[in-house]
Design a protein around this nucleic acid. Structure first.
Lengths: 362, 362
DNA sequence: CTGAAAGCGCTTACAG
DNA sequence: CTGAAAGCGCTTACAG
């Protein structure tokens, strides 16, 4: 029917006719100009410009039999694309444009226990010749890697949100150094003189667990007791922070600072503290994680650990590219460092433990 | 070199050989099964499964000469993809997957006054045969449409963020009904008994202007004076809300309610009010716009006007699809309605004007 | 219902 | 440096 095809456009033959040479020469003038005589080249270029010729990518790829130049950004198991992944995508997209690669965006949901063959991948991945490789973002499990292997598609995973037994090692992966981030957060608090620092975060989730490990290391190095983590993300991040902080307070636990390993959770914690009559940072210091919008919207603005979100995206593209070109050095996981952003939710602590108690008990 | 081509994969010829028929028959068995005898079809299907044959999309498209099935989601003039556009993309992507379309993501920055030929479009758009059409999201100006016209690419624009003289009418566009949203926000406040309702928003920007118009209409219909808008987005949304609210208060302007036509601005306004010793909603009611994360993080959680963000994305895909298939009815702008979400930043107002004054003046 | 053949628009050895 | 020709892997009139 009224299909808008591409056939009616000007083809390489039109150019050849116009420039008075063969299509082979036109092709060479365009793809390997040094192989053609300057005068002919000029003529071809003029014809190309005059006719407005743009090569048909389909034919070119078919003839070349090479990579398509498109990579897929696959967002898995997300109800909704939060700003965090949006920024990763943005970073990937910018880098890709610079490398003249296209980024295809696709979503996908699957169960952690689904057999690889049963995972419902976007059909774009199973088509041949569309995509060269994929960036596996979102929250993922080992089974999707097997599904991808089955398709023969090279991939790079966003390792931070990859959930697997610790034995699974994927060399083509980009990670955020959560452990060090947790260490930085706790160290900041310790430097401010805090001694009773508690961790809030759901350690059943790997990224929270790593942040906890960093926190624990800092505490231990400082010769301080390292309390167990609290918090469950089951009912959402905000609720996690709120109820964990409220619970700590209500149970009479002593603390002068909180490291809530997620900004939205930290906002919840601040809110809980306020509801108990405490103020931040006067009574309690709070550090968040990620440097999301929530950190800036919070009252007071949150001291937090900024993660290099866009860089995650660009590094994924870089790595996928070396994977595709089979270039020199072997692929190894990239671990990106975080950076502490000091704002207004933390301050020096000079009271001793006893005073801290009386304050926390309100 | 070590280019990972597609040539080594199983082709239609392998299948034909295996199924003992011609490639034409294999093709038919796959694309128009009813045209082939049941027994042969079975045989072909078995071979396809056994060999793991997946058609090469490049060859197929070249042979068919039809659309590629890919559309481009173009994000213009955004430093960073905020959650708002991320959700539009998500909506588009979900709809596209359902329609078996791929969505390519690309960014682009250009000046409103750049001549169309000088706009640096992602090269994917100028390549032939990659993309069938584009969804023009982000903040855009008329010149990009001319650039797109020049490439012969069909497009649908996200009309809400399109900035042009009022004479520019683009039929293939999806809009949010800002005017009605503003009307709903103001009406809600009026129903609560507020009479001194002020508008904050930067009306040099079209979407704020439309929201102001809705507000003004509600005020006028209620026989109330409609004050001029205040606020400049120059230094950011948050700052806009903060300084406009602070200024209103400091100048002694009477008001019991504020409609801040953006959630982040509303958070700023709430903060300004608090800094002047007023509380929300006890002293002043505040309504925001968009129902962003900020609305839920705000203290108190903001009453706001929710915009159908994902639907914008899916409607864009729908419209682009009818554009591409040249289907039946003619394309007309789609206008999406907003919905008031009542939370805790608004409450009944029963004081009279005089009391209101004394309160707002602290 | 099925096959032989032409064609989609390019690229690239292979000869000159 | 340049051209004739084969080929990339499919699809689809055109004859049977």
């Amino acid at each position: 029917m009224a299909e808008r095809g591409t056939a009616r456009f000007v083809t390489i033959e039109d150019v050849a006719r116009d420039a008075n040479c063969s299509t082979a020469t036109v092709s060479r003038a365009l793809n390997s100009p040094w192989k053609v005589n300057a005068a002919t080249r000029k003529r071809v270029q003029a014809s190309v410009a005059r006719l407005g010729y743009r090569p048909n990518v389909r034919a070119r790829l078919l003839a070349r039999g090479t990579r398509s130049g498109s990579i897929c950004f696959l967002l898995s198991n997300r109800q909704f694309m939060h700003a965090f992944h949006a920024r990763i995508l943005q970073g990937a997209s910018d880098r890709a444009e610079a490398m003249r690669l296209q980024v295809l965006f696709a979503c996908c949901n699957y169960s952690p226990v689904a057999p690889p063959a049963k995972i419902d991948l976007p059909h774009i991945l199973s088509a041949r010749g569309v995509i060269d490789g994929v960036i596996v973002a979102g929250t993922n499990y080992p089974n999707i890697l097997h599904a991808l292997d089955g398709l023969g598609l090279p991939y790079v995973i966003f390792g931070t949100n990859f959930i697997a037994g610790d034995e699974t090692y994927v060399s083509a992966s980009v990670h955020i150094d959560d452990e060090d981030g947790g260490y930085q957060a706790a160290s900041h608090l310790l430097e401010q003189g805090h001694k009773k620092v508690r961790f809030i975060g759901d350690v059943s989730v790997p990224w929270y667990r790593r942040r906890y490990l960093g926190y624990a290391r800092a505490m231990t190095e400082a010769g301080l007791p390292c309390d167990p983590p609290t918090g469950s993300a089951y009912r959402g991040e905000m609720e996690m922070g709120f109820s964990a902080a409220a619970d700590l307070f209500d149970r009479g636990v002593e603390f002068t600072a909180l490291f809530v390993a997620g900004d939205v959770g930290a906002v919840g914690a601040v809110r809980a503290l306020k509801s108990r009559g405490l103020s931040v940072p006067e009574d309690i210091s709070v550090v968040g994680f990620n440097d999301e919008e929530a950190a800036r919207l919070c009252e007071p603005p949150l001291t937090t650990v900024a993660t290099p979100t866009e860089v995650v995206g660009s590094e994924c593209v870089n790595m996928l590219h070396s994977l595709l070109t089979g270039s020199e050095e072997k692929i190894e996981p990239v671990v990106l460092r975080t950076e502490l952003v000091v704002r207004e939710s933390t301050r020096k602590e000079s009271r001793n433990g006893r005073e801290a108690v009386s304050i926390t008990r309100g």
